[in-house]
Structure formats: structure tokens, C-alpha cells
Design a protein around this nucleic acid. Sequence first.
DNA 1: AGGATTTGACCTCA
DNA 2: TGAGGTCAAATCCT
Length: 342
Amino acid sequence: MDEIISLILHGCELARELGKDLPNLATQPNSLFNSLEDITKIFGSAKERVLHSQDSSSSSYLHNTLTLEHQQIGTSVEQWLRPNPQARDIIQTQLAADRNEAKISGGIDIRGSEAAVRGSQAVDVVPASDVNIASSRSQRPRQRKDQGLISKMTVPAPRIGNTEIPPEDGFTWRKYGQKEIINSRFPRSYYRCTHQKLYNCLAKKLVQRLDDDPSTFEVTYRGEHTCHMSATAPSILPPAADHHITQDQLAATTESPTSRWLSMDVNPIRGGSSSGGMIGGSCGGGGDDVGTSTGTRYTGKEVDFPVMDLADAMFNSGGSSSSMDFIFNSAERRWESDDKKN
DNA sequence: AGGATTTGACCTCA
DNA sequence: TGAGGTCAAATCCT
């Protein structure tokens, strides 16, 4: 147990140092990444030891302690990310994949800390079944067999420009359907990722105006972006076939059926290798978003991203650098791309 | 010409 | 059986 405490104290020390240097590190993604990775490894190691400890009461206490430290890291990272909405775009997508993995692998429930840092928008990531029940309690709950993780949020309509479409979210979408919904004044629009065919990207979103507040959209995201590219051109090859989860593998997992919406393995952690498996990335963005009228982007002002999720990813990665590799490598590529344009 | 959108028909599932 | 979701031909747009 002394060893665990020693690890934690060391991690706290590094976290404090990181906090002091954060203003400087904000302009040095590589250094920041190295620092974060060190901290992540230490706490990940400590967490593992706690979880495997025989002393359940001590484990519980230490786990809470680690969670607190975890939140402190998230706060610091939030400060850094605030002026970097591009990184947040990337991180958000990756975190959704990581979160999905955490559920599949029976990981720690992290929704509590997520909820604590929700921003101005109502954002939640819940199983499809929950969404159905919550949104249409008066009706028979519906659930597609292959649906899984769903992210649901409300988004204010743009005050200028075309107010008929929801604000941008960093991805490029192609509308493939519109449907009148029973007991709703406004039709629901169905979008899928523009790169669905090319990269087998299964991301979709549903957009519908709220009956009681037409100036607000309810946007439901389904699935993850398995492509990783700018709005105009791919930056990497499509994910290899071996990243698909077979139906047997899915059946062998303990997650609820509703989390199976994805057929792709979007988490680099599970495989223990991030090479070629970095597929939880951004479909759009790239700064220009020249795509479609639905190729939209949220700005930092409009959306308070659940930055705590970054800490969740760090913490739940158990010391693996793959997630952070993805985050910073992607962010750097995007920043480099933007620099060239400017 | 090629990609995006519209919209009626069809499919899925509780 | 019917509501929600998807398909695909027609149409629009650049």
C-alpha cells in the first residue's frame, strides 16, 4: 500500500508542476503531451494496483482520491484546451470511442464526473435504450438492433445566416432523409457522414427542432467517426479490416446490446497498439469546412465541450499512450495544416 | 458532370 | 401494425 501512496504522491507532484507550467506548455503540445503522459502512467499504474488490492475499503478511499486528482488534471487541461477548439474536436471524438470501450470492458463508470462538467449545452452520452425511453416515454420504446452509444445534445439555432440548419459541429454531413415525427411540429432530418462510403464511417446524426423552443435543435449523434480526414481530403488510409469486431466478439462482451451500434473497433487501447488503429478521429474540420451546408462547426463560445472527458480518457487509458498519441498527433497535424493556410 | 438535397417508397422492429 | 429509419430515383446546385 505504501507503494501505491508513493505513486500517487509522485503523480500529484507532477500534476502540480504541470499546473504551474501550463501557460508555457500551452504553446508546446509535445512537451505538454510528455508531461500528461507521465502523469497518466503514474495514476494509471496506481489505479490498477488499487483495483487489484485485497483491501476493499482502502481501495474505495484511494479510488476516490485518484478520481479527485483526475478531475484536477481535467481542469488544467480544460484551461489549455479553451483556446484550442480544434483539439477539442478531435478529443471529443476519441473520448467517445474510449468511453464506449470502457463500457464494453466493464470499466469504471465515469458518467458522474462527466455530468459535473457539462457546459452550457445539455450534452449526454447514454445508451440508445435510455434515449428512447426518455424521449418518448408515452410511446412504445424503439431500438434498432445495431444501435449503441448515442450522444444527445441541444443546440441553439444560428442567429445569423441560415437558421434552418443546426450550428456547425466540425464534421461534414450528408442529408439522407427527412421524416415527419408523430406529436412533433417539426420534421426530423437524418444525416450521415459524408465519407461513409469511402471510409465506412458509420457516424450519423439526427436533427430536430424542439416543439417548445423552435430556436433550439436537438441533435442526436450515433456511432463514431471511423474516418479521419479533413473536410476535403483524406489524411490517412482507411482503417484496416482487422479493426472490425466480429459479431461473435460482440456477443462475447458483457455490454448492453445498445452499445453495439458500432461495428468498428475504434479504440486503440483494446488492441494494445495504436498503429493503424487510430480511427476515432475527426471527419471534418480542418479549419475550412468547405463541405456542405451541413458541414458545420461548433465554436468554443457556443459549446462547452466536456473537457473533463480528456481526463477520463487519460485515466481510463491505464497508462497507455495511444489515446494521447492520437489526440496530439491529430491536433498537431491540424494545426500544421492551418498554419500552411495562413 | 458530379455531388448534395428532396421525397416517396420501402424496411425494421417493438 | 405503425412509427421511425433508410433507400434511391429525381431534382437541384455549383
